[in-house]
Design a protein around this nucleic acid. Structure first.
Ligand SMILES: NC(=O)c1ccc[n+]([C@@H]2O[C@H](COP(=O)([O-])OP(=O)(O)OC[C@H]3O[C@@H](n4cnc5c(N)ncnc54)[C@H](O)[C@@H]3O)[C@@H](O)[C@H]2O)c1
Ligand SMILES: NC(=O)c1ccc[n+]([C@@H]2O[C@H](COP(=O)([O-])OP(=O)(O)OC[C@H]3O[C@@H](n4cnc5c(N)ncnc54)[C@H](O)[C@@H]3O)[C@@H](O)[C@H]2O)c1
Lengths: 204, 204
DNA sequence: GTAACGCTGTGAAACTTTTCACAAGGATTC
DNA sequence: GAATCCTTGTGAAAAGTTTCACAGCGTTAC
């Protein structure tokens, strides 16, 4: 009964596209219209939406507002989820600047860094803490997710600290395959691999 | 006879792991050892490596140096590939800082930005050009790949300029599904989707 | 020399994901 | 009211991906 990573990814995309449609004033949308925006097919969209239980009308299609609501019930936690950023370097700063205030369902509530120069500062409204306070601060703030943006050799050790602190999900930017205990979800976002793939497929 | 995106991605990962092994002084490696580092299985590794034509020895496993060489023949273009970065904002600057000098097979040779304040400056050894010189500079420099790091509403128009300039592959960071003509490969690296997935799966 | 071992390469099975195809059904037209 | 149209939801087929399982083989042990 579990929904696959791919389906969840596409549902997130559909919700974004539906929000655009709502802003454009659309009341209803057909699966083939959503598919055109998602660069996918109508059958794929309908199959994906089956997991929601929400049903469209054969005559009008899907009610945009209602479908966004159904997607949000499915995708979002009941309360806003708090995220910790570990590693406030070049990438970490860009992430802080980007995610602040943009997404209602998650906030980067705190950041951590090993550099004493950075500890104590506040970047984009987000305080930077020392690494040795990770466990304490994470529990105190009720953090359940983390982003790893530290150099590759540090990533596994940082992940281990996060597991100890009770984190349930990690988005890892370091080009390292992390070990994770049962029950913790890790997504590897590997930019170098992506660029390598573009280089490979862009050439044939 | 085409190799799938997934297989290419894993081959890129294996090469990285093999380079670590080479640095550690390993001469040979077994599929199950590589699998352990890749958080995968021995059968998967062996199946993936089949596309290379290179064959390991049943007694010793794979010769690390030779396998890296075979992977490089398969993955890399004959000459170094040049990449253009479009959009030198928070993310673009982080990418410039990161990719400079790090990867032998591709270089970010030039950048482009719409902001006149940024045009003419050189960041991490990479000159920033105006958007209206994109076609000319790209052809002159022999650029074949591009990274899009402009705000979402600008991304599709930027992509269209890149197609005109003859670019063959794009790595897109904007949370927008780009249309692409036949023969151009586009990879969407959607951080918001990734974080959304971490939020979803980290919670159950 | 030969037996035992533990690996690789790969057909075939199992599983997952996508696509097809069509019954059922509202809206609109006549 | 009946006919037409174009949609949805979903079983079933097709396509793609991973895992299993084992023949074959180089190495080592004796
Ligand atoms: N910058 C990019 O565009 C880019 C691209 C691809 C991959 N990455 C990956 O993202 C990660 C971060 O990249 P970056 O460019 O921001 O690096 P960076 O060197 O600019 O920043 C790293 C930050 O992590 C901190 N840090 C180091 N060790 C730490 C530890 N043990 N605990 C906590 N904090 C620690 C440092 O003080 C620094 O602030 C790296 O793994 C890199 O490979 C970055
Ligand atoms: N910063 C992040 O961590 C992050 C995270 C997720 C997604 N993204 C995506 O990456 C993209 C870039 O993000 P950012 O934070 O660097 O934004 P940014 O606003 O800091 O930078 C955007 C840059 O693009 C330039 N630009 C604007 N319009 C342009 C055009 N038409 N042609 C060329 N250049 C143009 C601007 O001058 C600016 O330098 C956005 O699409 C954003 O959604 C960024």
């Amino acid at each position: 009964m579990g929904v696959s990573e791919r389906v969840v990814g596409r549902l997130i995309l559909y919700r974004r596209l539906l929000k655009d449609l709502a802003d454009e004033g659309a009341g209803y949308v057909f699966s083939h219209e959503l598919a055109a925006r998602a660069k996918s097919t109508a059958a794929q969209v309908r199959r994906d939406l089956m997991v929601l239980g929400y049903m469209g009308s054969p005559a009008r299609g899907y009610a945009v507002r209602d479908l966004i609501a159904a997607l949000s019930v499915f995708l979002d936690a009941p309360e806003r989820q708090k995220v910790a950023l570990v590693g406030v370097g070049n990438l970490g700063r860009a992430l802080l600047a980007y995610f602040v205030g943009r997404h209602p369902q998650f906030t980067i509530a705190v950041a951590f860094d090993a550099d004493p120069q950075k500890v104590g500062r506040v970047v984009n409204g987000c305080p930077i803490h020392a690494m040795d306070s990770l466990g304490q601060v994470a529990r105190q703030e009720g953090i359940d997710l983390a982003i790893i943006a530290v150099p590759a050799p540090e990533a596994q050790a940082v992940a281990a600290e996060l597991y100890k602190a009770g984190i349930r999900g990690i988005l890892n930017f370091a080009p390292v395959r992390l070990w994770a205990p049962e029950g913790v979800y890790v997504e590897h976002l590997d930019m170098t691999m992506s660029l390598g793939r573009v280089a490979y497929f862009g050439r044939r």
